[in-house]
Amino acid sequence: MFEARLVQGSILKKVLDAIKELLNEASWDCADSGIQLQAMDNAHVSLVSLNLRAEGFDKYRCDRDLIMGMNLKSMSTILKCAANDDIITVKAQDNADTVTFMFESPNQEKVSDYEMKLMNLDQEHLGIPDTDYNCVIKLPSGEFARICRDLSQFGENIVIACTKEGVKFSAAGDIGTANIKLAQTSSVDKEDDAVDIDLQEPVTLTFACQYLNLFTKATALSPRVSLSMSPDVPLVVEYPIGDMGNIRYFLAPKIEEDENN
């Protein structure tokens, strides 16, 4: 038996908005400790790793480890039926082939439940090594979303260059070039608005806008985002989800072509 109850149901709605455009389907690995999801997009360029700890739920029970393969479009359709202030409960029997979503209105007067068929997915799981990143940039998530959106008007790639002076996002294309520089915030009035750079070595990497824009769908989950970079390894874009966990996106960088290719 698996049951997870979330009073703040809107979190689950937002989580789904943050992954459904990148992934068509995914396996939710439910264990005693909580729920995890790891999946790559079809092109194997990016990876989503979602972690929701059991403690973060208002009620959580998982008697046996359970892998639930879900079609995320269908799941999103169902979650659209929940109001933002609804309490959401996800339930499944052991070895079941369906999962049930129950939505309760805050005053308990309306209760709806939806059952969805599960899928058998064979997905490749990747082992992600622990990496010490050369630079970690923390900034307001809204700011990051804005930068990605604005720069994607110029070209299909964004160059992120991090030095001790600050971080520079740039793009170039047919209409011209665009550069956005953010300096480390000196005085901290509001913690959520600060730009915080932890730098060991300067790093410059190039990434596809298309994916960054899909990552920023998670903006609603958190006021802050952190970008971790090291030369020639995937970028990590991490959004904390309250106290209950986080969602991390990994993105392979663009590689300059060498001549013999």
Partner: peptide
């Protein structure tokens, strides 16, 4: 144009995830 990298070349696929 520069080529997009793939995650498989950075992270190892765990054997038979199923």
């Amino acid at each position: 144009t520069s080529t997009q990298g793939r995650l498989d070349s950075f992270f190892k696929v765990l054997p038979t995830p199923g």
